[in-house]
Structures are given as structure tokens and as C-alpha cells.
């Protein structure tokens, strides 16, 4: 295990963490502001991935593919908000679980009907297919660098949007105290719709960017949803800053766990046991992290509500 391998894994973790952040940001806002548990958030991520993969294949333009993914998903999300989500805001969490689970079922079938059952192979944009020489003896896939850059850029944009703009102020007001915000005359319905669309756009962006390095298939939304939920719980529900920190934490812990735990175990345990235990512990790492954080800080690292 040399320094280069470690550095490479850290970069991978950073990239994964940033993508998780894009997904978790919308989820945490919807949860924090509207008190709505949206299991179907992962389906929006899936939609982004599918649209991007198909448009990229058809047009050969990656930029166009990403743009189309975001626009289409936002449009779908807006429709979803009007038809279903809007009517769930004041309902019980369990009812929200029921309804949004229903949406997952519908979304999975819709994707199957449109794009078929077989996983899509999304290609990396040709210009970014090769590695970049980051340092002597350290080649790193240039596409993964793009992922990191895009993630950081969006995080910065989101930070500015939430902290420096009027709409951001309304969003924060809604997250920390909805009743007060309503009392102050904030048009909560409009803010909700905006936030939901924003979250959908970010999830679609993550889906589009992740498509070339993961398999685009039905069920990918359900698979990414759980880590994203773990992120928002660790970060503190409703907190963008918390989601950012927690996403990087989870990204690093998960990647590091997969890369280093089997190696570390092999050093201290018999190989057969280590081979069994390594992947299990790596998969479990982020949940242990969550349990630890909740034990110490029951409302997450950065509680949005006082």
C-alpha cells in the first residue's frame, strides 16, 4: 500500500462524496423545509442518468446530455410536485413513505417501458477518456477529475445561492422555522416548489455525471437513496452545510473502507476470514459512522433547527 494508492483512493472518495452531496442536498432541503420524506428522490437520480446516457449516445455531446438530463428531470419533478408531493407536505411521515414508495414502483416501470430492462452502458465523453498525469507516477482518470471539479463548483454555487440571495434567505427561513416564515408572509408554496425542483435538478446532475462510471439500471435509485439518507441524517436534517460535510465523510469512509479494510484485515487475520469479513465491514462502515454520530449528537452534526 503506497502513498500513491492512498491518494488515488482519497480522490475517489472525494468524488463519490461530492456526488452524494448533490443527491443529499435536495433530499435534506425537502426533508428539512417541507418535513417530507421523499423515497422517490433516488428515482430522479435514475431519470437523470438514463436521459444523459441516451442523449449522449444519440448526440455525441456530453454537455448537451447533462443539460437535457437536468431539464427533463426538473420538468418531471415539477409535474410530480403538483400531482402528488404537494399533497403530502402536511401528512404523516409513514404516509409519505407509502406514497413515495408508490412513485418508485411507477418510476421503475416507466423506465423499463421507455429504455428496456437491460442496463445501459454510458460512455465517458471522448475528450475525457484518458488519464491525466497528476504527478510523477500518478495517473488519474480525467473524467473523475471533472466529477470532483463539477461537484465542488455546484457546492459553491449552492452555498452562494442559499447564503447570498433572497430566495436562499427564504429557503433558510423555511428550514429553521416554517411557521415563522409563514407568519412573515413568505409564500411557502412557491418556495417549496422551487426547492423540490432544485433538488431534482441536482439529483439529475449527479445521475448524469455518475452514469459513465456506474451501471445505468433500474434500481440504481433505490441503491443510492440509502447512502443519501445516511448523509442527511449524519449532517443534520435540513442543513446544507451538514450534508456537505457528511457527504464527504461518508464518501471517504465508504471508499477507504472498501480499499483499505480488506488489506488491513489481511494483515491481522487469516486470509479466508479476512476475505469474508473485509467487504462486510466496508459495506457497514457508513452505517457504523451514522450510529456513532447519532449516539453523540442525536440531531446530526449541524442541527438546522434550534
Amino acid at each position: 500500500m503506497d502513498a500513491i494508492f492512498v491518494f488515488e483512493q482519497l480522490l475517489n472518495g472525494l468524488g463519490y462524496g461530492l456526488m452524494l452531496f448533490l443527491i443529499a442536498a435536495g433530499l435534506t432541503l425537502v426533508f428539512g423545509i417541507m418535513d417530507t420524506m421523499n423515497l422517490a428522490h433516488g428515482s430522479l437520480y435514475m431519470a437523470g442518468a438514463y436521459v444523459a446516457a441516451r442523449v449522449h449516445e444519440a448526440s455525441a455531446s456530453f454537455a448537451l446530455a447533462v443539460l437535457a438530463a437536468v431539464l427533463v428531470t426538473v420538468a418531471v419533478a415539477a409535474l410530480l410536485e403538483v400531482l402528488v408531493i404537494r399533497r403530502l407536505y402536511r401528512r404523516d411521515h409513514l404516509v409519505q413513505v407509502l406514497a413515495t414508495f408508490g412513485i418508485i414502483l411507477i418510476a421503475d416501470d416507466a423506465v423499463k417501458a421507455i429504455w428496456g430492462v437491460a442496463p445501459l452502458m454510458a460512455s465517458t465523453p471522448a475528450a475525457l477518456a484518458g488519464p491525466v498525469q497528476l504527478a510523477e507516477g500518478l495517473p488519474y482518470p480525467s473524467y473523475r477529475l471533472l466529477l470532483i471539479a463539477a461537484g465542488l463548483l455546484v457546492a459553491l454555487g449552492l452555498y452562494l445561492l442559499v447564503n447570498k440571495t433572497r430566495i436562499g434567505m427564504l429557503v433558510r427561513a423555511g428550514a429553521s422555522n416554517r411557521q415563522m416564515a409563514e407568519f412573515m408572509g413568505v409564500r411557502v408554496g412557491t418556495v417549496f416548489a422551487f426547492v423540490f425542483a432544485l433538488g431534482a435538478g441536482l439529483a439529475a446532475l449527479a445521475g448524469a455525471l455518475m452514469a459513465p462510471i456506474s451501471s445505468v439500471q433500474i434500481g440504481m435509485g433505490e441503491a443510492i437513496l440509502i447512502p443519501a439518507l445516511v448523509v442527511i441524517v449524519i449532517g443534520g436534517i435540513g442543513s446544507i452545510r451538514g450534508a456537505f460535510v457528511a457527504a464527504l465523510l461518508v464518501g471517504l469512509v465508504d471508499t477507504a473502507g472498501r480499499a483499505f479494510l480488506p488489506l488491513a484485515l489481511r494483515a491481522v487475520l487469516p486470509p479466508s476470514v479476512a476475505a469474508d469479513l473485509g467487504p462486510a465491514l466496508a459495506g457497514i462502515a457508513m452505517y457504523v459512522l451514522m450510529a456513532a454520530v447519532l449516539t453523540l449528537k442525536p440531531a446530526g452534526l449541524f442541527p438546522a433547527r434550534a
Partner: peptide, 14 residues
């Protein structure tokens, strides 16, 4: 395509 009718059922139930 047997998932979506069940999904619709859930929404109706809600």
C-alpha cells in the same frame, strides 16, 4: 409491467 399499478394503488390508498 406489474409494478406501476401497485404504485398507483399506493397513491390511491394514501
Amino acid at each position: 409491467y406489474w409494478h406501476w399499478p401497485l404504485g398507483v394503488l399506493l397513491l390511491l390508498a394514501v
